[in-house]
């Protein structure tokens, strides 16, 4: 791809990713409602919500707290652009981490006990999923000999067949990454729980809208990574991403929230057993 093509593609991604992410959020709410025998909101409700948030007054505890959210947003957009234009997958992961750290710092900056606990828990969750995500990238490298997303996507091999352990492990940490129960300890979607809204407690109006949109970008990136395991067959990749999304929803509705110890242990044991096991098999049976 020429630099110009890359730039054009990046613009398309920046526009399209939040639309896709917002639609997914709408589907999420609709499906969750049906699982709970409710009718649920319209499909476009997330967009209506965000529009409404933009019109609301912005309330803060600390005047500088919102800047961190702006950086969170910008780096999340950057991450999506980097991933979908086919950049280096490790660099994508690092950019994603950088973005997430800005959100955590925003919560610290707000200096409120509920956002503080949310920030601490978010850090534990980040520590929990990071190894598995990196191991997934390593596994992809071992099969395709490249860390570049384009090369991985163009590989004729169906990665999921060589990397089943990594794929399952990745889906497990996706639950953490998408803030779903049983691992939604840092920022619950329901404000009546023990930490109120956790990490986003003190954010409102336009800033909260940006956090929401950033999460839409994030959802597309992480589902994109899951789809990468099936990239050799594009139709299967789409089906797989859909199945993963549905599965995570189901888990969200079935499980009760766990303590951080269980979340950390689940993610790390999965990474150590399935992830490392899979990598060893691939490496020694090469």
């Amino acid at each position: 791809m020429s630099p110009l093509d890359t730039a054009l593609l990046a613009i398309v991604v920046v526009v399209a990713a939040p639309i896709a992410g917002g639609l997914l959020a709408g589907i999420d709410r609709k499906l969750s409602a049906r699982m709970q025998s409710r009718w649920g909101p319209p499909l476009l409700q997330p967009f209506y919500d965000v529009r409404k948030l933009f019109r609301k007054e912005t309330i803060v505890v600390r005047r500088s707290q919102n800047f961190y959210v702006y950086f969170f947003f910008v780096f999340m957009v950057f991450t999506a652009a980097l991933f979908f234009t086919g950049g280096d997958i490790l660099l994508t992961i690092f950019a994603l981490t950088l973005a997430s750290i800005f959100l955590v710092l925003a919560a610290y900056k707000a200096s409120s006990p509920y956002s503080f606990i949310g920030a601490e828990r978010e850090l534990i969750l980040m520590m929990a999923y990071e190894p598995m995500v990196l191991l997934a990238a390593v596994g992809m490298y071992l099969v395709t000999r490249s860390f570049i997303v384009v090369d991985i996507a163009r590989s004729p091999q169906l990665l999921a067949l060589r990397l089943p352990g990594l794929f399952i492990g990745f889906v497990v940490v996706l639950v953490v990454k998408m803030r779903k129960s049983p691992f939604d300890l840092a920022a619950s979607h329901h404000a009546h729980q023990e930490i109120v809204r956790g990490i986003t407690t003190e954010f409102s109006g336009r800033t909260l809208a940006l956090i929401e949109i950033a999460h839409w970008y994030e959802t597309t990136v992480v589902l994109g990574m899951a789809a990468l395991f099936f990239a050799a067959l594009p139709w299967l990749a789409a089906v797989a991403a859909g199945c993963v999304f549905f599965l995570i929803l189901l888990v969200d509705n079935v499980f009760a929230r766990v303590k951080w110890q269980v979340a950390l242990a689940t993610a790390w044991i999965t990474a150590a057993a399935l992830g490392v096991g899979n990598i060893l098999v691939v490496f020694f049976l090469r």
């Binding site: 750290i101 710092l105 610290y108 900056k109 980040m126 190894p131 150590a272």
Partner: peptide
């Protein structure tokens, strides 16, 4: 991978402590 995820935790919580203002 496990070691660097731990470094992430202890550095960010330190950074957060510097920023919080009660």
């Amino acid at each position: 991978v496990f070691g660097s995820s731990a470094t992430l935790f202890f550095w960010v919580k330190w950074m957060g402590k510097l920023l919080e203002v009660t």
